[in-house]
Amino acid sequence: MPSTSSLHLTVDAQYCSPYAMSVYVALLEKQLPFTLSTLDLDAGANHAPAYALRSLTARVPALQHGDFVLSESSAITEYLDEVFSGPALYPPHPQDKARARQLQAWLRSDLLPLRQERDTLVVFYRPIRCPLSDAARRAAHKLLRVAEQALPAGADYLFGQWSIVDVDLALMLNRLRLNGDPMPQRLADYAALQWQRTSVQRWLDLPRPALK
């Protein structure tokens, strides 16, 4: 097994990035020891030459493993699953694994109006009163439709057992659930269940600075 002594994760200073959360949870689920540091994205610390050059994309999260630095969360979680033993982050069947990666890519690239109007401050700090715009309502409808279709009836997880994609989907659903926006009860129950996972609770317990 490759050495884990030099695993280091860099995340945002408010611990609000859904992508940083995904990698943090993945490291805990793989039972890998790691150190953690933060960058003030509002101050542009991620664009400092030293970090930008190492991370390549100048974004968080970034995982350093020895001399190798990797950014982009789904690339990191796939790397962790391929390089290290321990509990799997992705389902074992090739078609399920492909579907999991499809959902990860979709959650990161679509639904922009919803991500803007129900940002992760809703999830990690407080709800907001502003109603969704027409564009955000359409995005929410799309999210709920896909989630309903992807989650088997009566299931706690997308692929029969927990995977990192359950955390990613639950976070997106929690943008609505934790703000009190309407959603099917079974999806609300699914998102709430994922939020109780020990690794997720560890992320939720991190000391967030007060909002300015």
Rank of each mutant, 00 (worst) to 15 (best):
M1L: 10
A20W: 06
Y79W: 10
L143W: 04
F124L: 09
L53Q: 12
S37A: 13
M172T: 13
L193S: 13
S71D: 08
A139E: 01
P92V: 13
Q201K: 13
Y125P: 10
Y51W: 12
F84S: 04
G86S: 04
Q161T: 15
L144I: 13
P2F: 11
D67G: 10
T57N: 08
M183K: 02
L121K: 09
D156N: 14
G160K: 00
A192T: 15
A48K: 12
R115F: 15
A52F: 08
L63M: 08
Q64N: 07
E72N: 05
N46K: 00
F68I: 08
A20K: 01
F68S: 04
L193P: 10
Q102D: 08
W195A: 13
I128V: 15
W162R: 12
A150R: 00
A20R: 01
V122Y: 03
R118K: 01
P209R: 05
S22M: 13
T120Q: 13
R108V: 00
R59S: 12
Y24K: 00
N46I: 01
E72V: 05
H47Q: 05
S133T: 15
F84C: 08
R186T: 13
S6L: 10
D81R: 02
G66E: 07
S55G: 03
P152S: 00
F68N: 05
F124S: 06
P92M: 07
D205T: 11
W162H: 15
S73A: 14
D42R: 14
A100R: 02
A100E: 04
A52H: 06
L206E: 11
R186S: 11
Q31S: 14
L158H: 06
L151P: 03
T35A: 13
Q102N: 01
L32K: 06
L158T: 06
Y90E: 01
P209S: 11
A100S: 14
F159H: 09
L28D: 09
M1F: 12
A88T: 08
L193G: 12
D181C: 06
P113F: 04
E78Q: 15
L121S: 11
I164T: 03
P18H: 07
A155T: 09
V60P: 02
H47M: 05
R137P: 08
L178D: 12
L176V: 05
V122S: 01
D168I: 10
T57Y: 14
L36S: 11
